[in-house]
Design a binder for these strands. Structure first.
Lengths: 242, 242
DNA sequence: GCAAATAATATGTACATACATTACAACATT
DNA sequence: AATGTTGTAATGTATGTACATATTATTTGC
């Protein structure tokens, strides 16, 4: 584990270095803003050239994981969750990219009667039961997202699935449902008692509220999802051109 | 314009090469699948080293604009031409669509020294004055947006313009500045005293906070804008596909 | 004629080196 | 105590070189 670069491996050195950096990124000290060893030092330790190391670093900078500043050094980018308009991922994937370990706890699955908005979106009768999934996520002692999903009966979920793996991956593999389109509405809300309790914040604190409508390839409704994000832990980013 | 690389320019060679490649990418023949000249050739033509050229190419590959294959060469990625996932409008237009009549009041224009973030975004020195515009909008007795814009000196605003007409239209007609790209960050915040006063809400109430970076066609910064929206009066919508 | 061996060609990997630029720190000057 | 100067440590830019690897094209052998 010391200088974990294997010059005999068929994996390119820069790729090995990249992986190594990703591991470092997820370490707590670097998460908290510790600067990385400078390129020259690090290259020496890893026994690779500076250019090769820079290849790895550059990639991570481009991904937005690292920031560099002359004289100041290289650090982990400010931990901001982003959802770019073009490539949207499920939450756990976003977080994994940023090297933050997130735990799911309090995942609950149940069958319920849909409320009007859900029934309307799914275009089903209000008497038809749908699968509801609630999740609380964050670090174990610091929840920062609470969300609720409803799935269209068409998807064929039984409630026995493994909801621990990335959601859209699971849907794709287990149920051949490919989510391709989503419409989202984002607004600010004051946390009511229920949400405040879930997120362990005072009632009335601001939360970012996200409502998401997910469609499959044929624009048929798949999932209705709402999320409550602790105000300081989530930033939504959008890039658009005309 | 032929091999437009200027070794005396302060713009790094790889950046010049990158721009040049972007131009080539938009040419029809390359759009249609023509392979680029190989690295060695192209480097020779541009009179830069292969490594430098690769820097430029790699960036575009990472952005997904180019694809490379050994022996076959480098081509324009054929997947997506332009991702116009959502069209963005200035606020008054957005609201008009929603059938709400909005009035501007308390529009103030002043010259100020930029704070760090603004100076950084504009890539100017902190001593250089910029035009600041503050607006409070809503129904006369019920403000629901407060926002602040800073404009890059390059735009050439004097402060005497008519800020009552749609902003981007005015910029286009009066100053030939065409805003084509924006990056936005949306989050929830608690209103501090100043904002609470402006929006006539209690301190600590949730507001939707939007930070917007606007660029012109050449990706040069044009406007820096932040907005505070009363929680119940604004919903941000995004549509995305994959 | 067709398959296998071989050559040619483009990108991929890796290194060493040199100098430029920037931002901060320490010091000196007024 | 403010201000200017200089040093220095980090990233940024740029080049040259060498060999590896994957893919296509060509030649060779049967």
């Amino acid at each position: 584990m010391r200088h974990a670069i294997d010059h005999k491996s068929p994996i390119p050195l820069h790729a090995q270095a990249e992986q190594l950096l990703r591991n470092m990124i997820s370490e707590e000290e670097y998460q908290n803003g510790k600067v990385f060893p400078n390129e020259i030092e690090l290259a020496k330790v890893l026994a690779i050239s500076r250019s090769t190391l820079r290849q790895a670093i550059n990639k991570l900078v481009f991904e937005g994981l690292l920031v560099r500043k002359k004289r100041s050094g290289t650090k982990v980018a400010k931990s901001v969750v982003s959802s770019k308009s073009n490539n949207w991922l499920s939450f756990s994937q976003e977080m994994k990219l940023r090297g933050i370990t997130i735990k799911n706890f309090e995942t609950q699955v149940s069958w319920v009667l849909p409320d009007d908005e859900v029934a309307d979106f799914f275009e089903i009768k209000a008497e038809r039961q749908v699968l509801k999934m609630e999740k609380l996520r964050g670090k174990p002692d610091e929840p920062f997202v609470y969300f609720v999903s409803y799935f269209h009966p068409r998807v064929g979920l039984t409630g026995e699935e493994d909801f621990k793996m990335p959601l859209y991956e699971m849907l794709e593999h287990e149920h051949s449902v490919i989510a391709t389109l989503s419409k989202e509405e984002i607004s600010a809300k004051a946390a009511d008692g229920f949400i405040a309790n879930k997120l362990q914040i005072p009632t009335g604190s601001p939360v970012l509220f996200r409502k998401r409508f997910v469609y499959d390839h044929g624009e048929r409704p798949i999932e209705y999802n709402v999320g409550f994000y602790k105000a300081d832990s989530f930033v939504y980013t959008v890039e658009s051109s005309r």
